[in-house]
Design a protein around this nucleic acid. Sequence first.
DNA 1: CCCGAAGTGGAGCAGGTATTCCAAATGGGT
DNA 2: ACCCATTTGGAATACCTGCTCCACTTCGGG
Lengths: 224, 224
Amino acid sequence: MTKDPDARTPEPGGPGLRSDAQRNRERVVEAARDVFAEQGLDASTNEIARRAGVGVATLFRRFPTRDDLIAAAFADKMHAYSVAIDEALADPDPWSAFCGYIQRVCQMQADDRGFADVLTMTFPTAKAFEEERNRSADKLTELLDRAKAVGRLRQDFAHQDVPLILMANAGVVTATRDAAPDAWRRLVGYLIQSFAAETARPIPDPPTPRQMYRALMRLSRKTS
Amino acid sequence: MTKDPDARTPEPGGPGLRSDAQRNRERVVEAARDVFAEQGLDASTNEIARRAGVGVATLFRRFPTRDDLIAAAFADKMHAYSVAIDEALADPDPWSAFCGYIQRVCQMQADDRGFADVLTMTFPTAKAFEEERNRSADKLTELLDRAKAVGRLRQDFAHQDVPLILMANAGVVTATRDAAPDAWRRLVGYLIQSFAAETARPIPDPPTPRQMYRALMRLSRKTS
DNA sequence: CCCGAAGTGGAGCAGGTATTCCAAATGGGT
DNA sequence: ACCCATTTGGAATACCTGCTCCACTTCGGG
């Protein structure tokens, strides 16, 4: 009687949830983090529920769509992702800031198979991330501008090149994770060198921002 | 292509097959080529049979394992792949030969989703390809040596870097195929520039040949 | 033209997903 | 201690796969 039928709070940890329910929710999120990290975003729902020690119904009640679960599982990694660029902006040397940022983000991909997917297939998943992404985008532009201003980053480096790097890196880490876990460092080493202004030579145009946006949106729906 | 009774392929098309059976076999191979190109190596068997207009039993009778089908479907693209390096070796300028080869192979990945998989996940599939690969490996070494000898290719470029490039490129093409089909050219542009001797700066060591071999063998068995 | 061997297609099976439903268990306010 | 709304686990459903089996069809040599 005292309960309000529509007192649903959309996303936070657990507002009106019973204490045990809230605990179970957290267990699901933790299991999802683990499983996604190991197996990528297309890991089986059953596996996550099993690993969390709850029934599948519990998982679905708390996270009706897969995107809800992904958003919850990667919320803090997305935060770390945007913190990374803040830290980069704090570096007095814009070039080392840029290089450090690229390496950091690629490292995050190497560490977490699911997160590599989130960063490349990306937004399909969550509006929750969209805001964070937009903030990051502005900061990224700032970072690139600084590195160009000091003459270290080539002028024709486009911000679309960053997701391009992430996609390339994702290709390497998914292929080499088991057999050669550090192979991606070599790729990134090559790439960063090619971003240096002093050695820049003409290369094909980058994809347009709009193309890149659409590429990132891809695959929310499977092959069809 | 080019139906030639004794062109190559030891015992492929059909030795003692009835004429209709042989025709069906060819239809399956063609359907497999199309479907693999569109959907990648993990396309559904049923889909291929349906597209070929035959029953699934026919497909399985002719190609008991998936690898058999893959080998048949990509035989001529593998041949083209090894021809590409011959053509590169025919180029009098070792550096443009090298650059052209990389671009050519990456182009092939961009054109065929399944072939991109074959080149990166690779051999899981076929001993048939192994011989072709070994021949190619020797020729590749020759190509790299020449380019290094004329001082255009950096000395620390390792032959393992080639599959590394293919993996990176595969990451980009799978992500951007629909929205930005030429994005991979930009990546390859960056990479090739970083392979030039004159601008070379130290980068992390490449994976060992053995690591790379194991990486290529990966995923013959799923996640387990 | 005929008939056995070769070839065929689709139903069927085992095993995998995502998602829904509901009888039973549980928390926590009283 | 009680009671009922909330929460739960697992069975049930509805698809997908890969792969096999077998009654029927077709080829092609005589």
